Simulated assay, not measured.
Amino acid sequence: MEFADSAPILAGHLPYPLACRILHFTPKSVMDRHSSPWAELNFALSGMMEIGIGGVTYLSPPQYAIWIPPHVEHCCQNEGDVHYACIGVPAAACDGMPDKPCTLEISPVMRTILADFERRGIRYPATPEDRRMAQVVIDQIRQARAYASYLPSTSDTVLAPVLSALQRNPGDKRGATHWAATAGITERTLLRYCQQHLGMSFNEWRQRLRVVSALGLLDAGHSVQTVARDLGYSTPSAFIAMFQRLTGESPDSARKRGMQPVS
C-alpha cells in the first residue's frame, strides 16, 4: 500500500480568507490521522476519496465535499486515482458554517473559482480581486446544502460485510432477502439494522450508493446508457428518474459538467 505525504501545514498566522491545496493521490494511498487549526473542505476533482472521522467513513465523490471543522482529527484513503482540492478556512471565518463534520453540495460557482485558482497557482489569495473571489467561496460554503453523511457506513460486524459487498458491485440486483440470508439474519432484522446503524432504509442506502457510483462513472465520461446498465437498471429512463430525484439534475448534465477541464 502506498502512503501519501503527511498533511501540509497551513500558515495559520497569515490573514488570508482561505488556503487552496490541490492534491493528487495514486491508488491505495493513505494519509495518516491528523488535525488542523483551520477548517477543511475536501472534494474530489476526479475520483473518490474516503475520509475517516470519529469511526465514520465519509465518501467524497465528484460534486460533493466533506466539511471538517477546526481541530477535528481525520484520516484519508482511496482505492483509485484521486485528484482533489483541500480548502482551508481559518477558524475565525467559520461563523455560520457547520460545527460538525458533514457532506456539502458543491456549487458550480465554487468549482469555477477554485479551478481558476488552481490554473493560476493561487494558494493564498493575496490580491484584492482574488480575496473577493475567496470570499465568494466562503459564502458558498455557508449556503451549501448539508447532509450528515451522504452515504453512511458502520462497523457493525453483521451489516458492514453486506455494505462492503454492495460497494464492490453497486449494480447487484439481489434484494434484501438475499443479503439478509448471507448475513445469517432475517430480512426484518436487516432492515432494522439499517435504520439503527445508517439512519435510513436499506433501499435508500442502495440508491445513494448508485448515485455515488454513477457520479464517478459520469465524471469519467461514460455514457448515461452505459452507467445505467452497469448499475443494474433495465432501462436508462429508470436510472435517469432515480438520479434526477436524488440529485436534482439529469445524469447527462452531471456527465457534461464532469468532462469540463478543472484547470
Score class of each variant (00 low, 15 high):
H83A: 14
G54N: 10
F3I: 14
K256N: 13
N42E: 09
H222L: 14
D130W: 00
M200A: 13
Q260D: 12
V158A: 11
R255T: 02
Y58F: 15
I106W: 11
A148Y: 00
R174E: 13
A165D: 08
H71L: 14
L151G: 12
V137G: 09
V109R: 12
F117P: 06
T57I: 15
Y84T: 02
I53S: 05
M48T: 05
V136R: 12
L159V: 04
P62V: 02
S253H: 04
D116I: 00
V211R: 08
H222A: 15
T103F: 09
L163S: 05
G54D: 11
M200K: 08
R119I: 00
Y193A: 11
R131Q: 15
L163R: 06
M259W: 01
R120P: 00
Q135E: 15
H178R: 04
K173C: 13
A165M: 05
L218M: 11
R229T: 11
N42H: 04
H71C: 09
P128Y: 02
F243K: 06
V227P: 14
I51A: 12
T112L: 13
A115Y: 03
Q143R: 12
A39D: 06
Y147A: 09
M49T: 01
K100W: 02
D230H: 09
S46H: 11
A180W: 01
D130C: 06
E249Q: 14
P17M: 12
Q167R: 15
C102R: 05
T226Q: 15
V137M: 10
G96T: 05
R206Y: 01
A160N: 11
T26M: 11
H178L: 09
C94Y: 02
T226H: 13
G55C: 13
F243S: 06
Y16C: 06
R208Q: 10
M97N: 05
K100C: 13
Q225T: 14
L163A: 06
D116M: 09
P261Y: 07
I138Q: 12
Q225Y: 03
K28Y: 14
A180R: 01
K173W: 02
T186R: 03
A181T: 05
S60Y: 09
V212T: 13
Q225S: 15
G258K: 02
S29C: 13
S213A: 15
P8G: 04
Y64R: 14
V109E: 12
A220L: 03
M1K: 04
P8H: 03
L23H: 04
E129P: 01
V211N: 10
Y64G: 01
R111G: 04
I68E: 06
L191S: 10
M133L: 15
C76K: 09
N169G: 05
P101M: 11
F243L: 06
Y150V: 03
H222C: 12
G12C: 08
V137I: 14
P70E: 13
M49P: 00
G175C: 08
G54W: 03
Y64E: 09
T186M: 04
M1H: 02
G199M: 08
L18K: 07
M1Y: 07
Y58S: 09
V82K: 08
D116G: 14
A134M: 05
P17V: 03
Y16D: 02
A44K: 02
L191W: 00
M31Q: 14
P37N: 10
G54V: 09
A238M: 07
R123I: 08
A254I: 00
D172G: 02
D81R: 10
Q260W: 03
V72Y: 01
F202I: 07
A181M: 07
R111Y: 03
M200W: 01
Y58G: 08
R245P: 01
G216L: 04
